[in-house]
Amino acid sequence: MSAELIAEPSEVRIIRRKRWGAWLLGVAVLLILIIVAIAGARARIIDLDVFLQYLTSGEILIGARNAILVGTVSMVLALVVGLTAALMRLSGNPILSSVSATYVYFFRGTPMLIQILFWYNAFPTMFPRLYLAVPFTGAVLIDLPMPVVITPFIAAVVGLGLAEGAYMSEIIRGGILAVDKGQQAAARALGMTQPQMLGRVVIPQAARIIIPATGNQYIMLLKSTSLASVIGFLELLRITQGIYSANFQVVELLAVAAFWYLAMTAVVTAIQTTLEKLFPVR
C-alpha cells in the first residue's frame, strides 16, 4: 500500500453527528419552563416571606419527622413481610405458595387508602379487644380495647407496610429468580443448608437487583405517608392542612410541604446511590 494513502493520526478528523432533534426538544422544554416561571412570578402565587416563615417552623418539622418515622417503620415491615412472602412463593409447597400469591394479589389490587381506613375503622370493630393469656393458668398478659391498640400511627404503619410488602415480595422474588440456578446447585453440593445458601450465595447477588427497586419503593412510601392524614395522624400534609385552613395561605404551605418531600427524596436517593455502589450490577 502506498505511503500517501496512510493518514497520520494527527490528520484524522473526527466529525460528530449533529443531533438537531434533541437540541430543538431541549430548547422547547427550556422555553416552556421559562414561560411557566414568568407566569408564576407575575401572578405572585407564592409569598416568599410566608414560605420562609413556615419552612422551618416547629409544627412543620414535627410533620416531616412523623412522615419519615411512618415511612421507615412501614418499609422495615414491608421488607420482612415481602421476604417471607417471596420465600413462601418459591418454597414449592402448594399451600404456602397459594397463600403468598393470594396475599400479593389482594394487597396489590386494593388502594393503600382503603387499607389504612380498614385497619383504623373496621379491624377494631371485628376484634373489639386484644386478649392474650397463658394457657391453662388463667394468667392474663394483655387485655386492652382494640381502639387503644390501633392508634393512627399503628394503622398507618400496618396499612402502608402490608400494602408495600406485596410489592416488595415480587421485587425480592424477581431478584432471587435472577440468580443462576447452577450456583444454587453448587451451594447444595458443598453441603450448605437452605438458610446458608440464601445468606451466602443467593441474597448477596439478588441484592444488586433488589436495592434499586427498593429505593424507588421507599421514596413512593414516604410520599404515601400523606394518606395517613385521613385518619388524623399528624404527618406533614395533615399539619400543613391544619395551618393553611387557619391562615388561608394555601399555596405557600403546600410549597413548604413539597419542599420537605423533595428533601426526603433527595436523602433517600443519595443512600440508594451509595448502596448501589456497594452492590454494583455486572
Results as ranks from 00 to 15, higher is better:
3 A>H: 10
5 L>E: 07
7 A>H: 09
15 I>V: 14
23 W>N: 15
34 I>C: 00
35 I>Y: 02
42 R>V: 10
49 D>G: 04
49 D>H: 10
50 V>R: 00
55 L>D: 08
64 A>G: 11
73 V>D: 01
74 S>R: 04
75 M>H: 02
86 A>P: 13
87 L>P: 01
89 R>D: 14
89 R>Y: 07
99 V>D: 01
103 Y>I: 11
103 Y>K: 09
104 V>N: 01
104 V>I: 15
105 Y>L: 12
106 F>M: 12
106 F>A: 13
119 W>Y: 13
119 W>C: 07
141 L>C: 06
146 M>N: 00
155 A>N: 06
156 A>G: 14
157 V>D: 11
161 G>Y: 10
161 G>C: 08
164 E>V: 03
166 A>I: 13
170 E>R: 06
172 I>R: 02
175 G>L: 07
181 K>N: 08
183 Q>H: 04
186 A>P: 00
186 A>R: 01
188 R>D: 02
191 G>K: 08
198 L>P: 02
203 I>T: 08
207 A>Y: 06
209 I>T: 13
211 I>K: 05
216 N>A: 07
219 I>F: 04
222 L>F: 14
225 T>N: 05
227 L>F: 06
228 A>Y: 08
229 S>I: 04
236 L>G: 12
236 L>F: 10
242 G>D: 09
243 I>T: 08
243 I>F: 00
246 A>K: 10
251 V>L: 12
254 L>P: 00
256 V>W: 09
258 A>P: 14
259 F>W: 07
265 T>A: 11
271 I>S: 05
280 P>M: 05
